[in-house]
Design a protein around this nucleic acid. Sequence first.
DNA 1: TACATTAGAACGAACGTTCGGTACGGTTTT
DNA 2: AAAACCGTACCGAACGTTCGTTCTAATGTA
Lengths: 203, 203
Amino acid sequence: MTENPGSSVRGAALRKLVLDTALERFSRDGYFNTSIHDIRRQAGVSIGSIYHHFGNKEALAKALYDDLLQRMDAGLAEVMQRESGCRARCDGIIAFMFRAATEAPQTMRFVLEARHREFLPDEPPVCSSRPFRRMRECIEQGIQAGEVRPMEIPVAATAAFGGAIRLLHLHLDGVLEKPLAHYLTETQETAWRAIAMPPADYP
Amino acid sequence: MTENPGSSVRGAALRKLVLDTALERFSRDGYFNTSIHDIRRQAGVSIGSIYHHFGNKEALAKALYDDLLQRMDAGLAEVMQRESGCRARCDGIIAFMFRAATEAPQTMRFVLEARHREFLPDEPPVCSSRPFRRMRECIEQGIQAGEVRPMEIPVAATAAFGGAIRLLHLHLDGVLEKPLAHYLTETQETAWRAIAMPPADYP
DNA sequence: TACATTAGAACGAACGTTCGGTACGGTTTT
DNA sequence: AAAACCGTACCGAACGTTCGTTCTAATGTA
């Protein structure tokens, strides 16, 4: 475990340690199955420290949530800046999500699977957070540029990324036989087929 | 409210009343934000009755979960029996889910959004439940029949229904502008485009 | 009478949180 | 330079509340 009885950890390092521990427990057992005392024990810090840094349990979860969403958004922003054109960007977004779910499954689980509204009642739903808005905007631009069929935005956006996201869920639930990367290119191609503008001589 | 102080409700009717109340509260506030005492108060029954019929809180949730999954599976079975051919069945499945999410949003929320593993630790993930297995089988048969492109089953299945399911989530989160039905046919067409076998003279 | 069902007061455990306290570096006062 | 003071960080025993559950008595039903 991450026991740390001597507690040489202080300040910002302690804050980070608590956040890391909270992520591990929240994503594994869920928010309500994890007590502050659990986090205290595993992180090897005191109850007082946790309350000093975060105020209360809900604020700890919110700090974690904001942190992860922002990191995820930064990743997507980097994709959007590196790639140009809707197709390349969609592929990049899907690849990024697959990589994130493989390398940081706990983060992905907490962002994607947790029912945030149950413990953060004032938070808007995940689907209206920055990362998800970015995906929708990408599709909107694709339609305007003529790369993507003209269609209802929600339909296009969910068609483009819904398959990939469901595959992510399967991966996080441990029901996929092969590693995520094995399904990447096929997922990208399939997603694009669903929304791509057909060639001009299409029947 | 569903107050019922006089309590003429007994036996099977009482059991049903408790299940209905539990569904409403679980889907609105979540399992952990709903206490047995809450359900008792709203249903107008006694603590003793609840424990007599269900044993404990977890078993109540499991009874509800099994009930809803079975009802959903029956709906899907009916679609599979009525329709023949992969395309018609996929369309039927998506239409069924849209209808269910519109007419019984609480049911859909509990089946689709709740993190069951957090309160039913011994339950397999939703994605391996009967209804979801049915969807995957439908796609598998489509591939064998030559209606669907030969591809990895998980990719094909998530491509076929992932978009629709994400749209369901958007609907349940209340972020869609128009009623679900408005997006139905476009969702069906888009899903099919993603997985359909291309015509023989395809480049 | 016998059995199944309902009633609700009571209990113990677990939880989130509080609060009086220590430790310590920096700043002001003497 | 020493003393007094201050604010921040950390500690953990203790508190009040809530929750799931139990238990015994009462009640309806056959």
